[in-house]
Amino acid sequence: MLQKLKSESTKQLILNESYKLFYKNGFKTTSIDKIMKETKLTKGAFYHHYKNKRELGLAVIKLKLQERVYDLMISPLYTSIDAIELLKLTFLDKIKSFSIEEKQQGCPMNNLINEIGDSEKVYQTALKSIMEEWKLAVVQLIERGKKEKTIQTSISSKSVAVYLISAFEGIRGIRKIYDNDEVVDQYRLGLSMYINQIKA
Protein backbone atom coordinates (compact mmCIF):
# COMPACT_ATOMS: atom_id res chain seq x y z
CA MET A 1 0.00 0.00 0.00
CA LEU A 2 2.82 2.40 0.91
CA GLN A 3 4.63 1.57 -2.34
CA LYS A 4 1.44 2.24 -4.30
CA LEU A 5 1.05 5.66 -2.65
CA LYS A 6 4.69 6.48 -3.34
CA SER A 7 4.28 5.44 -6.97
CA GLU A 8 1.17 7.62 -7.38
CA SER A 9 2.96 10.53 -5.71
CA THR A 10 5.86 10.16 -8.17
CA LYS A 11 3.45 10.08 -11.11
CA GLN A 12 1.72 13.25 -9.88
CA LEU A 13 5.06 14.99 -9.39
CA ILE A 14 6.05 14.25 -13.00
CA LEU A 15 2.64 15.42 -14.21
CA ASN A 16 2.67 18.66 -12.20
CA GLU A 17 6.23 19.65 -13.06
CA SER A 18 5.72 18.77 -16.72
CA TYR A 19 2.66 21.01 -16.86
CA LYS A 20 4.65 23.91 -15.39
CA LEU A 21 7.55 23.37 -17.79
CA PHE A 22 5.30 23.02 -20.84
CA TYR A 23 3.58 26.27 -19.83
CA LYS A 24 6.79 28.16 -19.16
CA ASN A 25 9.05 26.85 -21.92
CA GLY A 26 6.75 25.18 -24.44
CA PHE A 27 6.04 21.52 -25.11
CA LYS A 28 8.53 20.95 -27.89
CA THR A 29 11.52 22.47 -26.10
CA THR A 30 10.85 20.63 -22.84
CA SER A 31 12.77 17.36 -22.94
CA ILE A 32 12.39 14.36 -20.66
CA ASP A 33 15.85 15.22 -19.33
CA LYS A 34 14.63 18.69 -18.31
CA ILE A 35 11.59 17.18 -16.60
CA MET A 36 13.77 14.71 -14.70
CA LYS A 37 16.14 17.48 -13.65
CA GLU A 38 13.21 19.51 -12.30
CA THR A 39 11.66 16.56 -10.47
CA LYS A 40 15.05 15.19 -9.31
CA LEU A 41 13.91 11.74 -10.46
CA THR A 42 15.59 9.18 -12.66
CA LYS A 43 14.60 8.35 -16.22
CA GLY A 44 13.63 4.94 -14.90
CA ALA A 45 10.97 6.60 -12.75
CA PHE A 46 9.67 8.44 -15.79
CA TYR A 47 9.44 5.37 -17.99
CA HIS A 48 7.79 3.42 -15.18
CA HIS A 49 4.80 5.77 -15.45
CA TYR A 50 4.86 7.03 -19.04
CA LYS A 51 5.89 5.27 -22.26
CA ASN A 52 7.16 8.49 -23.81
CA LYS A 53 6.74 12.25 -23.93
CA ARG A 54 3.72 11.90 -26.23
CA GLU A 55 1.84 9.92 -23.58
CA LEU A 56 2.87 12.43 -20.90
CA GLY A 57 1.69 15.34 -23.07
CA LEU A 58 -1.69 13.72 -23.47
CA ALA A 59 -1.93 13.15 -19.70
CA VAL A 60 -1.08 16.80 -19.04
CA ILE A 61 -3.85 17.92 -21.42
CA LYS A 62 -6.47 15.49 -20.10
CA LEU A 63 -5.70 15.90 -16.40
CA LYS A 64 -3.96 19.19 -15.61
CA LEU A 65 -5.19 21.41 -18.44
CA GLN A 66 -8.75 20.14 -18.47
CA GLU A 67 -9.00 20.62 -14.70
CA ARG A 68 -7.66 24.18 -14.94
CA VAL A 69 -10.07 25.20 -17.70
CA TYR A 70 -13.00 23.54 -15.93
CA ASP A 71 -12.29 25.17 -12.56
CA LEU A 72 -11.48 28.60 -13.98
CA MET A 73 -13.74 29.02 -17.01
CA ILE A 74 -16.44 26.33 -17.13
CA SER A 75 -17.64 25.57 -13.61
CA PRO A 76 -18.48 29.23 -12.77
CA LEU A 77 -20.85 29.33 -15.77
CA TYR A 78 -23.16 26.86 -14.05
CA THR A 79 -23.86 29.11 -11.06
CA SER A 80 -27.25 30.83 -10.73
CA ILE A 81 -25.97 34.40 -11.21
CA ASP A 82 -27.65 36.46 -13.95
CA ALA A 83 -26.43 35.28 -17.38
CA ILE A 84 -25.18 38.69 -18.53
CA GLU A 85 -23.30 39.20 -15.26
CA LEU A 86 -21.73 35.75 -15.60
CA LEU A 87 -20.55 36.58 -19.12
CA LYS A 88 -18.96 39.77 -17.79
CA LEU A 89 -17.36 37.97 -14.84
CA THR A 90 -15.95 35.28 -17.11
CA PHE A 91 -14.85 37.16 -20.20
CA LEU A 92 -14.18 40.66 -18.83
CA ASP A 93 -13.24 40.43 -15.17
CA LYS A 94 -11.39 37.09 -15.10
CA ILE A 95 -8.52 38.43 -17.17
CA LYS A 96 -7.79 41.09 -14.54
CA SER A 97 -7.17 38.40 -11.93
CA PHE A 98 -4.27 36.76 -13.77
CA SER A 99 -0.79 37.32 -12.39
CA ILE A 100 1.86 39.23 -14.36
CA GLU A 101 3.55 35.90 -15.10
CA GLU A 102 0.29 34.43 -16.47
CA LYS A 103 -0.26 37.52 -18.61
CA GLN A 104 3.26 37.27 -20.01
CA GLN A 105 3.02 33.53 -20.68
CA GLY A 106 -0.52 33.56 -22.05
CA CYS A 107 -3.14 30.84 -21.77
CA PRO A 108 -1.74 27.31 -21.25
CA MET A 109 -4.41 25.77 -23.47
CA ASN A 110 -4.03 28.37 -26.21
CA ASN A 111 -0.26 27.89 -26.14
CA LEU A 112 -0.63 24.13 -26.63
CA ILE A 113 -3.24 24.59 -29.36
CA ASN A 114 -0.84 26.84 -31.25
CA GLU A 115 2.20 24.65 -30.62
CA ILE A 116 0.95 21.07 -31.03
CA GLY A 117 -2.78 21.25 -31.84
CA ASP A 118 -2.17 20.38 -35.47
CA SER A 119 0.77 18.01 -35.00
CA GLU A 120 -1.03 14.86 -33.90
CA LYS A 121 -4.66 13.80 -33.98
CA VAL A 122 -4.51 12.59 -30.37
CA TYR A 123 -3.53 16.07 -29.13
CA GLN A 124 -6.06 17.74 -31.39
CA THR A 125 -8.86 15.52 -30.10
CA ALA A 126 -7.95 16.09 -26.43
CA LEU A 127 -7.69 19.88 -26.82
CA LYS A 128 -10.89 20.01 -28.88
CA SER A 129 -12.72 18.09 -26.16
CA ILE A 130 -11.87 20.79 -23.60
CA MET A 131 -12.91 23.53 -26.03
CA GLU A 132 -16.21 21.80 -26.80
CA GLU A 133 -17.01 21.45 -23.10
CA TRP A 134 -16.33 25.15 -22.60
CA LYS A 135 -18.39 26.10 -25.65
CA LEU A 136 -21.31 23.96 -24.44
CA ALA A 137 -21.26 25.66 -21.04
CA VAL A 138 -21.38 29.12 -22.66
CA VAL A 139 -24.19 28.04 -25.03
CA GLN A 140 -26.23 26.71 -22.11
CA LEU A 141 -25.68 29.94 -20.19
CA ILE A 142 -26.84 32.03 -23.16
CA GLU A 143 -29.88 29.80 -23.60
CA ARG A 144 -30.69 30.32 -19.92
CA GLY A 145 -30.34 34.06 -20.44
CA LYS A 146 -32.82 33.88 -23.33
CA LYS A 147 -35.37 32.02 -21.18
CA GLU A 148 -34.89 34.54 -18.36
CA LYS A 149 -35.30 37.37 -20.89
CA THR A 150 -31.92 38.96 -20.14
CA ILE A 151 -30.39 37.99 -23.52
CA GLN A 152 -31.91 38.61 -26.95
CA THR A 153 -33.64 35.50 -28.28
CA SER A 154 -32.72 36.29 -31.91
CA ILE A 155 -28.99 35.73 -31.48
CA SER A 156 -27.20 32.47 -32.30
CA SER A 157 -26.02 31.02 -28.99
CA LYS A 158 -23.30 28.92 -30.65
CA SER A 159 -21.96 31.87 -32.63
CA VAL A 160 -21.83 34.08 -29.54
CA ALA A 161 -20.13 31.33 -27.54
CA VAL A 162 -17.44 30.83 -30.21
CA TYR A 163 -16.94 34.59 -30.51
CA LEU A 164 -16.56 35.14 -26.75
CA ILE A 165 -14.13 32.25 -26.30
CA SER A 166 -12.13 33.28 -29.37
CA ALA A 167 -11.90 36.88 -28.19
CA PHE A 168 -10.79 35.80 -24.73
CA GLU A 169 -8.21 33.32 -26.00
CA GLY A 170 -7.03 35.82 -28.59
CA ILE A 171 -6.33 38.58 -26.09
CA ARG A 172 -4.48 36.10 -23.86
CA GLY A 173 -2.16 35.44 -26.79
CA ILE A 174 -1.83 39.07 -27.88
CA ARG A 175 -1.08 40.25 -24.33
CA LYS A 176 2.15 38.22 -24.38
CA ILE A 177 3.81 40.72 -26.73
CA TYR A 178 2.97 43.78 -24.60
CA ASP A 179 4.54 44.91 -21.34
CA ASN A 180 1.38 46.48 -19.92
CA ASP A 181 -2.39 45.99 -19.86
CA GLU A 182 -3.39 48.75 -22.29
CA VAL A 183 -4.37 46.24 -24.98
CA VAL A 184 -6.34 44.25 -22.37
CA ASP A 185 -8.22 47.39 -21.35
CA GLN A 186 -9.13 47.98 -25.01
CA TYR A 187 -10.31 44.39 -25.33
CA ARG A 188 -12.43 44.76 -22.19
CA LEU A 189 -14.04 47.95 -23.45
CA GLY A 190 -14.84 46.44 -26.84
CA LEU A 191 -16.20 43.20 -25.43
CA SER A 192 -18.22 45.08 -22.81
CA MET A 193 -19.91 46.98 -25.64
CA TYR A 194 -20.63 43.69 -27.42
CA ILE A 195 -22.12 42.03 -24.33
CA ASN A 196 -24.33 45.08 -23.79
CA GLN A 197 -25.55 44.75 -27.38
CA ILE A 198 -26.83 41.21 -26.84
CA LYS A 199 -28.78 42.15 -23.73
CA ALA A 200 -32.55 41.90 -24.04
Rank of each mutant, 00 (worst) to 15 (best):
E132F: 12
Q197T: 08
R188S: 05
V162M: 06
I171S: 02
E182N: 10
T79P: 07
I95C: 08
D179F: 13
T39I: 10
E143M: 09
Q124L: 09
I130R: 07
F27Y: 15
V183Q: 13
D179L: 09
E148H: 11
T90W: 02
E55N: 05
Q104I: 04
K20D: 06
E148D: 02
S156Q: 03
A126V: 06
S97L: 11
K176D: 00
N110M: 14
E143A: 05
K43W: 00
I198R: 12
L136K: 15
L87H: 13
Y187T: 09
S75G: 01
I14N: 11
N110P: 00
Q124H: 14
E38F: 04
L86S: 14
S31L: 12
I32F: 07
S75P: 00
S166F: 09
T29C: 12
N180S: 06
S156G: 05
D71V: 00
E55D: 12
K147P: 02
D179S: 08
I100S: 12
K96T: 04
L77D: 04
G44F: 11
Q124A: 09
I35S: 11
E120W: 08
F91I: 02
Y178T: 01
G145E: 07
H49K: 10
K62E: 12
F91P: 03
S129I: 05
G44Y: 13
E182D: 13
K103Q: 05
M36D: 00
T90H: 02
E38N: 14
N111F: 04
N52L: 14
Y187H: 13
E102T: 03
D93T: 04
K176L: 01
V183P: 11
I95M: 14
G26F: 14
R54T: 11
I14S: 14
E102G: 04
S157I: 00
D82M: 10
Q12M: 12
L164P: 07
S97M: 12
S99M: 01
K53H: 06
Y23D: 03
M73D: 01
N110F: 10
N111T: 04
H49E: 03
Y78V: 01
E85N: 15
L72N: 15
D118H: 10
F168P: 07
L87G: 14
N25W: 00
T30E: 06
K176G: 01
E17K: 15
V60Y: 01
T29M: 11
Y50G: 07
D33W: 03
Y70D: 12
S156L: 01
D93Q: 10
K28F: 00
I81M: 13
M131G: 02
K53M: 14
I81E: 15
R144P: 02
Y163E: 03
S7C: 10
K94I: 00
L89W: 01
R172I: 00
K62M: 05
T79S: 15
T79V: 08
Q66Y: 08
K28M: 06
L77A: 07
Q66D: 06
S192K: 10
I155F: 05
T30S: 15
K176M: 10
